[in-house]
Write a protein that binds this DNA or RNA. Structure first.
Lengths: 232, 232
DNA sequence: GCCGGTCAAGAGCGCTGCTCTCTTTTATTT
DNA sequence: AAATAAAAGAGAGCAGCGCTCTTGACCGGC
């Protein structure tokens, strides 16, 4: 009895997957606003209303794509991190940087969906927030590892973070246990700097200015690492 | 004869302005994708096709809004910069940071239009690129001023930028004359870091993590200043 | 006073997300 | 095996969108 049930559920899962796959393809071509449920249905040889059996609204389909996207970039980051020896913290950090950028360049529209301006009228449900931290966890572990290995020596150029920062620092510290507030603050600065750079590169802010963003990015990643205190 | 012509042109200019104003209002409420020519026309008591006399397409209206936006943030930055004594380079930099963030928080949808993911199908014409550098010019002048005043002492933590960076550095240097490549690289890193932070804050990446972004941002701006070599 | 250009208005095309109803198919229960 | 319940597809339709084309009114210059 359960086998027959799973039979139906299997075809349902398969169709669901096919929908998201086609949607992802359209996303890659036209971007988020160009994603059309009707077009997906057309490409599947379905009628548009049938798709609503699988995704109750366009936003729900978008949510699925967003979660998939966070998982994809998270996986890319995890693999890049795992490919380096555990003690090579700097190498792991640089690998993570290039993994994020590489994924972003390969999937610009998906990246825009994840880290760009939110789709108007769309409110991210809690599921997406959970999936969003997957890459951040890797990042935090690198810093935490370096800190506990004693190889993290942040250059003494920053003022101490204000006491009122302690509360937020405690929250962020969950991803990089026992690291002091100053390092947490640097981690935030570097992390936002990484995505800021990629955003500028991807969204056209570098147009007519930076023609070889790869070189500049690599250098920026090295500087970020030094700012964090990772050994050169 | 010219007076009558200008009479007609004056009402035309006024209506054009009214359209952009209403459009900006809708942008503030619904975001870029929610901007509807028909809704603008409705709010003006016009029929939709009449609006096309003023803006040949929705994208052209969007372009006007984008240029206005770049000018608005540019003006905010210029004023913040001018309000500080010329020799107070650190104060000017911090003022610029807070000006950008303040404008972004006050006009989140416009900020998303300028620095977030590009509107799909929309290709930014050259006019927007020209308006986009208005804030960057201010930023470059601060660094250039500090450099020529001899108060810029970048901490020696970065590796030297690779030789292949020289070409891009030369282009960026036009905004901060005579500054060495290393400082140009730092300027890029800090500039992207600033917008990366604001983007994270505005686009929800800090949700459930940073509850007091104002404090953290101020600290980040100080750290950026020190990384650049501005005196503390 | 007519003429040519400007503009608002209206109708309409093809697209969108979404809902409702109806029929067919599939799975479960008696 | 028949009856019932659940699920899924099909189709029509609503309101909205960007955009185009045509029509009729106004208005300054010859």
């Amino acid at each position: 009895m359960s086998s027959s049930r799973t039979a139906r559920e299997r075809v349902r899962a398969e169709l669901t997957r096919e929908i998201t796959d086609i949607a992802r393809g359209q996303l890659a071509v036209d971007g988020a606003a160009g994603l059309s449920l009707r077009a997906v249905a057309r490409e599947m040889g379905m009628v548009s209303s049938a798709v609503y059996r699988y995704f109750p609204s366009r936003d729900d389909l978008l949510t699925a794509l967003i979660i998939d996207g966070y998982n994809a970039v998270g996986e890319a980051v995890e693999q890049a991190d795992a490919a380096r020896p555990r003690e090579d913290h700097t190498g792991r950090w640089l690998a993570v940087c290039h993994a994020v950028r590489g994924w972003a360049l390969a999937h610009p529209h998906e990246y825009a969906l994840l880290y760009g301006s939110p789709v108007p009228g769309y409110r991210a449900p809690a599921d997406t927030v959970a999936a969003a931290v997957r890459d951040t966890v890797v990042y935090g572990r690198i810093i935490s590892d370096a800190w506990h290995a004693g190889t993290l020596n942040p250059p003494d150029i920053c003022p101490p973070p204000p006491p009122s920062f302690a509360e937020d620092a405690a929250r962020v510290r969950e991803m990089m246990p026992e690291v002091p507030d100053d390092v947490v603050a640097r981690a935030l600065i570097v992390w936002t700097g990484l995505f800021g750079w990629i955003g500028f590169e991807l969204f056209g802010q570098f147009t007519n200015a930076i023609l070889d963003p790869g070189t500049a990015f690599d250098h920026a990643a090295h500087c970020h690492a030094r700012f964090l205190g990772l050994p050169g």
